[in-house]
Amino acid sequence: MTDTMEKAGKLALICALSALLLGVVNSVTEPIIAIRKAAELKAALENLLETGTPGPREDLEDEGTIKARYSVTGADAWILEFIGMGYGGDMKVLASYDFNGEIQDVVLMDNAETPGLGKKAEADGYMDKFIGTGGTTPVPVTKNELEAPDEVSGATITFAGIAAPLKEGSAYVKALGDDK
């Protein structure tokens, strides 16, 4: 019994020391990470719009993959925030739409996609395939609907995890009309 307690005590001591060390490092890095993420979000929201200023975030419930929306001052547009399902789990996607549901721009934010494959969705030009769709042109949701299917080879789950929410967002914005 004493022997077991001694082993448990040693394991608990090592766990406690580890937790203490991580707590100290976390207290130093957490504010830096929070500031960086807030700056990245602000920059991403601004880059999604050619004109206008994004308003405050409004959380949405029961809207499927659409988790939040931002109204836009000075332009007939909405910005939507989605959580899509990628190969590596949840992917946070931001997209701007005009009032007709046409996609103006898209950016992939937090994700755990595979480096060199799904991660290519973060690269410049990847989202071009979606821009201008959603209004009169349907949002491409399968590889076969793309002009260059090879672009998403090896990462079709990532592509589908972005495309499906974007299509959903287009329908959502169309349903809103110009009601801000």
């Binding site: 090592i14 490092v25 890095t29 994700n111």
Partner: peptide, 27 residues
């Protein structure tokens, strides 16, 4: 526990000071 502690340290430090690399390596 020891290995996980060092990995979490690397993860936190990368997120704070090398965010591009942290995003690139992901999970």
């Amino acid at each position: 526990v020891i290995i996980a502690t060092f990995v979490t340290l690397v993860d936190l430090l990368m997120q704070a000071y090398a965010p591009a690399l942290s995003r690139s390596l992901g999970v």
